[in-house]
Design a binder for these strands. Structure first.
Ligand SMILES: [Mn+2]
Ligand SMILES: [Mn+2]
Ligand SMILES: [Mn+2]
Ligand SMILES: [Mn+2]
Lengths: 216, 216
DNA sequence: ATAATTTTTTAGACATGGCTAAATTAATAA
DNA sequence: TTATTAATTTAGCCATGTCTAAAAAATTAT
């Protein structure tokens, strides 16, 4: 597979994970910042290679083979992100683009040795699970901060949006993975929230709250 | 620069380092296992980009800009090789192909952080010098084992041929970087040598001796 | 049910990097 | 010095992955 094909496979994987079904041409185009026509071309190629199921105008879904391939790319991406943060002292908002390149390096041995070297991490720096060699993902129970009720406590274990912008905003709020929080009050008017972090009260918007995962 | 352009730049760098002048089209083709016509095409592109000096039928030489670029690729290649051996427990004959890919990852920060993490190594696993951020290479005095005289002692500090085949042969002979050796006798007939490694006598061919660097 | 709109596909083009075969230039031998 | 051989370049082709514009299909609104 080329780098480009791998990026498409990963995009389809993420889209059909979220939407739990078929990924549309335009969704894939949006995800990869490309044109729908380019997506159609590539989809047809991936269909020939039996990594996706495709019927014209029906969108696309990964085959068994495609799922396994996708999981291996995600595994590499997240292991490299972990490496960059834990070993090279990158911050969590700097790792994505580099991992986007590193995930395509073709060597089974490399990734398995990296896994050993890192101590078999289960989560990447954004709290996303790292698939194992067989593509299995441990699914951790988590809820969105926006779904929490007044007085409820929990620990931040992940983010839904892992853009640099959002992550740097969380840094400013002193919210990191592992941070303990308590909901003081959810405002009925706009769903904004007052929460307590390290004994200080912080106000966050509904959008922010809907992008933070919590373990209760 | 594309991966392909970078591989050409690196090939020209190595060739004109050795030959100390212009690299010919056919030498480059041989180095990169491609066709002369493809090389001519690429050379013309690199010339447009001002990374090489090129006059038809005269061969090619790196410009100042090209030299700096080449050194940065070699730096990345060798730092990654060091990482693979020292941190991921690869052996010295397994690292080249993976480094051939890793050298193209585009992130200044990545490579500088890697350098820090590795403790600023000066040599790669084959004894080749790692250029610094400015492309400077520390030149270490070394001679070929084939140039040594009877009874002379020295330490193995590098290899000229770093193919897997040769490296695995050295493993079999118990020759590694840092190994102390003593020349017992150089045979005038075929230039083969009897040498002492760890109190044992070993016989090597002239070809083998001409691919091992020694510090005396 | 038909019309308007959106989505998707197709057609045709371009850039990159590769190839083979033919033409050209340089190097070597007679 | 001329002929032969070797090296290099050019011409023309192919595959990949991208794009725009046009056509076709599906969806939504009237
Ligand atoms: Mn990628
Ligand atoms: Mn991540
Ligand atoms: Mn390379
Ligand atoms: Mn090396």
């Amino acid at each position: 597979m080329t780098y480009s094909e791998e990026d498409y496979i990963k995009a389809i994987y993420h889209l059909s994970k979220d939407l739990k079904s078929f990924a549309s041409t335009s969704d894939i185009a949006a995800q990869l910042d490309t044109k729908a026509s380019s997506v159609t071309d590539m989809i047809q190629k991936l269909s020939d290679k039996k990594v996706v199921h495709y019927k014209k105008y029906q969108g696309v879904r990964l085959t068994e083979k495609g799922e396994i391939y996708a999981a291996s790319i995600v595994r590499k991406h997240r292991l490299w992100e972990y490496f960059l943060v834990e070993k090279l002292n990158f911050s969590w908002d700097e790792v994505h683009d580099v991992a986007e390149e590193l995930e395509h390096i073709k060597s089974e041995k490399l990734i398995e040795r990296l896994d050993v070297f890192l101590g078999f991490p289960k989560m990447d720096p954004h709290g996303d699970p790292i698939p194992d060699q067989h593509g299995q993902i441990p699914d951790i129970k988590k809820i969105l901060l926006s779904a929490m009720k007044d007085e409820q406590r929990g620990i931040v274990i992940g983010v839904k949006d892992s853009s640099s912008k959002f992550l740097r905003y969380l840094d400013k709020l002193n919210i990191a993975l592992g941070t303990e929080i308590k909901v003081l009050e959810k405002e009925a008017f706009d769903n904004s929230m007052a929460i307590v972090i390290d004994h200080k009260t912080v106000h966050i918007s509904a959008i922010t709250a809907a992008n933070i995962y919590i373990k209760t």
